[in-house]
């Protein structure tokens, strides 16, 4: 219990010491920083040895250690580059194969299209030829039928005159009681027929 105030005073004292110690000049004035004790031969000797150690370390690091790391890194980047090149080449081959396949497909399609077109053309030409032949045959049939119809018509027309002549003679004989003169009847019938044919 008696020690308590003493114990409480200590942090304050220690804090003061800390402040003093943090200010190098003050600390030096207080007791002396070992770092600034240049009367101690070790202060300089550590620098001499330190320089030696640093030089040896520099030689070992630059001659042996770093080239080792650099070699592995170079090796890795070379491997990665090679792998990338291989992959790129493979991709190029694959692209070429795809392009080749696309070209082949296009060519096959074009050939098929051409074959279809020629087949259609041939079929069309064939059909045209057949149609022409059919037309010609029908044409001749029509012509011959028309000729037959014309003949029949002419025959019918010839018979019509005879019938008209006899009918006209008979009608004139019945109406007048005397026979009509042949040439006059024939002329009147021909005139009437000609007028009907025109009308």
């Amino acid at each position: 219990m008696i020690r308590r105030p003493h114990a409480l005073r200590r942090p304050a004292a220690a804090l003061l010491t800390l402040v003093l110690a943090s200010a190098p000049g003050m600390a030096w004035a207080e007791g002396g920083m070992p770092q600034l004790d240049f009367k101690n031969p070790l202060t300089i000797s550590q620098v001499v040895w330190g320089a030696l150690i640093f030089i040896v370390l520099y030689i070992l690091v630059s001659r042996f250690a770093l080239p080792r790391v650099g070699h592995v890194l170079d090796l890795r980047s070379a491997t990665i580059r090679n792998d990338l090149d291989t992959a790129r080449a493979a991709k190029e081959r694959a692209d070429a194969a795809v392009a080749e396949m696309a070209a082949a497909t296009a060519q096959a399609r074009a050939e098929a299209q051409a074959a279809i077109t020629t087949a259609v053309e041939q079929a069309r030409a064939h059909a045209a030829v057949e149609a022409a032949a059919m037309n010609a045959r029908l044409e001749t049939q029509i012509a011959s039928a028309e000729a037959r119809i014309g003949a029949a018509r002419a025959a019918a027309m010839g018979a019509l005159r005879d019938v008209a002549l006899s009918t006209a003679s008979t009608v004139v004989a019945r109406l007048t009681g005397m026979a009509a003169s042949e040439p006059a009847v024939a002329g009147a019938v021909d005139q009437a027929l000609a007028a009907r044919r025109q009308g």
Partner: peptide, 12 residues
Amino acid sequence: SNIDALGQFTLH
């Protein structure tokens, strides 16, 4: 009761 904060820097 003294804190020897600088003793750690002593060379030997």
